[in-house]
């Protein structure tokens, strides 16, 4: 059953067409990876899904409902969570409070329910040691984990991860992948933009390739990675 459907979505900034007639369907419980060179329009696509940007044309459907004109806040409450490419913690709030905001506003949970729910996520994302630390003082890995944890605290049915493995060491990346796999096992649908391909392909079922705002191809991981067109455009290998 389809949880997200983009139908002929386009977005331009001035003369630059950043998203060009993109159509995409994501099944419930699926993990989809999105790849493409820098400037391909991947993050813009996320902003169109979350409602931070409104498309010039086309529609966005979530769970069978047209949400194209629905605000970003209401989309979060409907079940679309996201992490940012550059971590954006609430710096003066503790790790626990960062999640508490998300659980109370995005997840519509009462304070008492939210408290235990947040601690559970913090435990699952490996942040228990820093639960009371101000988020502004966390190192990169923990900031990335916090991005993931805070998005989880909104109780999303669809979670959008934007280059969450970027800048991490192999060991840190491995840890994060295990956490994401755990989230996926719980039934959350994932769409993941990533340049760290070994991390991405170890989690996702399908890959979508964007280039100059256009959807180049969508398919199984092997089919996409072995495509001559993808190799040439994305990996820089001349075929």
């Amino acid at each position: 059953m389809t949880i997200l459907a983009l139908k002929s979505v386009s977005k331009s900034f001035g003369a630059l067409k950043v998203t060009n007639d993109v159509t995409l369907e994501v099944e419930r419980g699926e993990a989809l990876g999105i790849i493409g060179p820098n400037g391909a329009g991947k993050s813009t696509l996320f902003n169109l899904i979350t409602g931070n940007l409104k498309p010039d044309a086309g529609t966005v459907e979530f769970d069978g409902r047209d949400v194209t004109r629905v605000t970003a806040m209401d989309r979060v409450r409907a079940g679309i969570g996201r992490s940012f490419q550059i971590p954006q913690p609430f710096t003066h709030l503790s790790v626990y409070e960062n999640l508490l905001v998300a659980a109370q506003f995005g997840g519509n949970l009462h304070r008492s329910e939210a408290a235990h729910f947040c601690v559970d996520i913090i435990e699952r994302t490996g942040l228990l040691q820093v639960i009371e630390e101000p988020a502004g003082g966390l190192p990169l890995l923990q900031r990335k984990r916090l991005e993931l944890a805070r998005a989880m605290a909104t109780s999303p049915r669809l979670i959008l991860l934007d280059e969450i493995a970027g800048g991490l060491t192999d060991a840190e990346c491995g840890d994060l992948v295990r956490t994401i796999k755990g989230i996926h096992r719980h039934g959350t649908t994932i769409i993941w933009i990533e340049h760290v391909l070994h991390a991405l392909t170890s989690v996702v079922d399908r890959l979508a390739v964007l280039n100059f705002g256009k959807m180049l191809m969508v398919g199984g991981v092997n089919a996409v990675m072995n495509s001559p067109e993808v190799k040439e455009i994305y990996l820089g290998i001349e075929v």
Binding site: M73, V76, F84, Q88, F90, F105, G107, T154
Partner: peptide, 9 residues
Amino acid sequence: NVGAARSVG
């Protein structure tokens, strides 16, 4: 962070 606040509802 206004943007992040909006992203959590």
